[in-house]
């Protein structure tokens, strides 16, 4: 079974690579600055948000730099939001292919999560520039961050597979998910701190996997702590559970996709 999965994965690695590079080429083909936008875009977005939140709304977080605090949350949330959205529509928008050629269908959501993942890694560059410029000291625990990035990827892929499956059978999902995402953004302590939530609701907020990921990253970057066992487990468990659930549903339903073309 595992051997078969590995064999298949090896066989379709080239396809995956081609799909990801296609997304890159198409995204930047017609723009003058090209791939530079991958860096420029998040920098400019961060600049706008920084001005709005620090000068207009005057948000702050005691003891740590609010801008860094905000950007960590946004970078993680944006990865999830963009990748899960693209993964959701990847099956429906590739129906013409799925209908004609045999290939494992999971390559489409997976390639989208990888494509946005590469963009995510590029946005870490402006994030680190902000961290250094703001005077937040770096520490050795930064080396633990890949753990949370992998968890975030697994969680997003799981959600992407799940959403892609649902959207095949219920096209309304594209609209519904747009609304869910907006709610999700405001219910995740991205722009505000969890201490601003009434205490009896805090536990509920902590069940949000995205909060777990953001909190893990903030602990390391801003508070310079090794995350607690609870934080490690919170990230790992939510990632694994959602990924397995997504794979399970996707595999169970993928042979029916063809009827809903």
């Amino acid at each position: 079974m595992i051997q078969k999965i590995l064999y298949n994965f090896k066989k379709y690695k080239f396809l995956l690579q081609q799909l990801v590079s296609r997304d890159f080429k198409v995204k930047y083909k017609r723009s003058v600055l090209g791939i530079l936008w991958s860096l420029l875009y998040p920098i400019l977005m961060m600049a706008v948000l920084a001005i709005v939140f620090t000068n207009v709304f005057k948000f702050s977080t005691p003891g740590v730099n609010y801008l860094v605090y905000l950007i960590i949350g946004l970078v993680i949330f944006n990865y999830f939001s963009e990748a899960s959205n693209l993964a959701m529509s990847s099956i429906v928008s590739n129906f013409s292919l799925i209908n004609k050629v045999y290939m494992p269908k999971y390559v489409f959501p997976l390639s989208k999560c990888l494509f946005v993942g590469i963009n995510f890694l590029l946005t870490l560059i402006p994030l680190y520039v902000v961290i250094i410029v703001s005077g937040t000291e770096l520490n050795i625990y930064h080396l633990l961050l890949p753990y949370v990035f992998i968890c975030l990827f697994m969680f997003t892929l799981g959600m992407g597979l799940l959403l892609a499956t649902i959207s095949v059978f219920l096209r309304d999902m594209f609209y519904i998910y747009g609304i869910i995402q907006t709610m999700w953004l405001y219910l995740t302590p991205v722009m505000y701190d969890i201490s601003m939530i009434p205490e009896n609701f805090q536990t509920l907020f902590k069940l949000n996997p995205l909060y777990q990921f953001i909190n893990f990253a903030r602990s390391i970057i801003l508070y310079k702590n090794i995350p607690t066992i609870g934080q490690w487990a919170g990230c790992g468990v939510s990632a694994v559970v959602v990924l397995i659930f997504g794979i399970y549903i996707f595999r169970k339903k993928q042979d029916k996709f063809i009827y809903y073309v």
Binding site: L15, Q18, R22, K25, V26, K29, S96, L97, Y102
Partner: peptide, 25 residues
Amino acid sequence: IELGAGFDMQLTARENIYLNGAILG
């Protein structure tokens, strides 16, 4: 059955040879 499935119109012929080839396995 259906040729050219998976061509991306925005890509060049060279790029499409690899993309389409990968899609055909």
